[in-house]
Amino acid sequence: MSSLTLALRDSSTMLRRNLLHARRYPSLTLNLLLTPVMLLLLFVYIFGDTMSGGAGRSAYIAYITPGILLMTIGSTVIGTAVSVATDMNEGIIARFRTMNIHRSSVLLGHVAGSVLQAITSVALVGAVALAMGFRSTHATLLDWLAAFALLTLVALAFTWIAVGMGLASPNAEAASNNAMPLILLPLISSAFVPLHTMPGWFQPIAHYQPFTPAIETLRGLLLGTDTGNNAWITIAWCLGLTALGYRWSKTQFNHNPT
């Protein structure tokens, strides 16, 4: 068996294992969905009228949905960090390390499973937004496909970072704390209010972080707003984070014998 076939086969076996875990114990995934859904409800129904500056709730739900969808990814990957950290404390990982299998398949299985979960979560939260009145005004089929690709790319990038965080954490609690910034970052982006409404000293922080360009790009695709070069910046962020997370995770996994 060639090494690529071996890698694919072992990784898909590991993916099945992770999906089995997720299916049998869905509470973690569902709990993580609560945060974006609660924020969506809170901001639309409680603050919506005020936040939109009189433009109305339907205008505000259109404004925040892209940010909420990306926040869903940030939230889901916290679960990834937790399950990786938990998994690494299990004896079965030591067993995998002594087996003649593709070395990285354990990590690749986690990543593939986590990206699938993130996309499913985004779809569920998107459905809630639709039910609450979100409508995409300008999106063509191509825009929808591009939006899907964007969300997948962001999910992949943050999943690798989360896997690295999970590997760096001694236990589930630590992993959950270490991965907290991934759900906080969207709060200090352009998800809920435009950047120019923020204090001047804070604007660079909100501006130069991966969620803002990703949110602006998604807005452009779904609502036809001007995206400028945000799409390229997002792609650069995602590729960079993926490469970083991949290297960081792989190094830790190979040099971290239990």
């Binding site: 294992r17 089995l20 875990h21 049998r24 114990y25 299990e90 004896g91 079965i92 030591a94 067993r95």
Partner: peptide, 9 residues
């Protein structure tokens, strides 16, 4: 020494 089974499945 420590059981190497996957307890979740």
């Amino acid at each position: 020494q420590f059981s190497a089974v996957d307890g979740l499945i």
